[in-house]
Amino acid sequence: MSQSQDTSTQPVATEYIPPSVSSHFPDLHTGNSYAHYSPIPTNITPNTPSNRGTPVILGVDEAGRGPVIGPMIYGVAYLPIELQHSLLAETHHFDDSKVLTPLVRARLMRTLCTPTTDLHSNVGWAIKSLSAQDISAGMLKFGGSYNLNAQAMDATIEIIRGVISQGVNVAEIFVDTIGRPDVYQRRLAAVFPTCRVVVEKKADSLFPVVSAASVVAKVSRDVSCEVLWRGIREGRQVGEAGAMDVDGLAEDEEEAGWGSGYPSDARCVTWLKGNVDEMFGYGAECRFSWGTVKDLLEDKNRAMQVDWAEDDKEHNKLSQYFGGGVMGAKTEEQELRSWFGSGVKEVF
């Protein structure tokens, strides 16, 4: 889960739109997070009540942790343990997605999703897409305690559990780290005690299965961002009849107008400055908890400012309207019960 920035803006949707995006156009445009799982490959035997299935190695990586625009996507890839190096590294040359060109990444993803190929019959994959809207809402909840690291951990656990729930015999888990590898590894080992768990920095360049997960995540995010941008530009949901073919976009389409989506990208900042709605700010494509967006929304020349009435100093707790007490003077059970009247035994 490397945080290094990939500012490549070459269109990838002109090459291939994977099912992790084409099957979820409504979710993208409404700002919903979602998960997508491939079918179990034909060469992987699932678990049965009487027998364990094919032992697989599973890799996890993310794309889009730092951008102000678009989803953060966690990708996983899994395959029989003995095929990791021969199939992924030697035959198809998977590597950290940041060192592969957009064209190479897209073609690897297409092969992975194409029946009759060796990748399709041996490698399963999945993604968890965390929308910009949900990321920001989570970060602002509970005084900011549900930060990006906590959301990342939950997404990682969810997507691994999702694969296991399909009946896949996950024996080994390799993860590119966020934060300290030892802390992250202990947490995942506690959640998946029957699996060998390895968490390392730069895992996407060390382990081919994590490289494959990196490609899955990166292609899914790049195409998601392009779909979002084209939907905004055209004023409709991309994916409606006539708006986009799932095999690609028209070759003469220009590159995504917001560049890489990172706050340090001049094209991104220019787009943000020129596309703020004075009343509603931005749509589901922007992470409104990011400082870049906050600053623009507080700019009186770009967004409407609202003055909120101050709270009544004498009645700053709702509970004071019910029984005259303050929150904490009664137990939660007593407090809730009094909102709906006193019990019969209390009256008589």
Rank of each mutant, 00 (worst) to 15 (best):
S145W: 11
R230K: 08
L206W: 02
P263V: 13
E346A: 04
L318Y: 04
Q10R: 08
I40P: 00
V276I: 14
F340K: 10
D222F: 04
P208G: 04
P18S: 05
L188Y: 07
L130C: 09
R236T: 14
V21R: 06
V216R: 03
G124H: 10
V56W: 05
E172P: 02
M244E: 00
W339L: 10
Y262E: 02
H93W: 05
D182S: 11
G259H: 07
Q334D: 11
A171E: 12
E333C: 06
D61V: 08
T156D: 05
Q151E: 03
R65D: 05
D176I: 15
L100V: 05
L112P: 00
A212C: 04
K300W: 10
M327H: 12
E332G: 11
Q151F: 13
A35V: 14
A284S: 07
V12Q: 10
L148W: 13
A63Q: 00
M153H: 15
R105E: 10
D182W: 15
Y37I: 05
S214Q: 00
G341R: 09
P67V: 04
V104E: 08
S23T: 03
G144T: 05
W125K: 04
W258D: 02
D252G: 06
E310L: 14
D61F: 11
K345Y: 14
S121I: 13
P49N: 02
L249W: 15
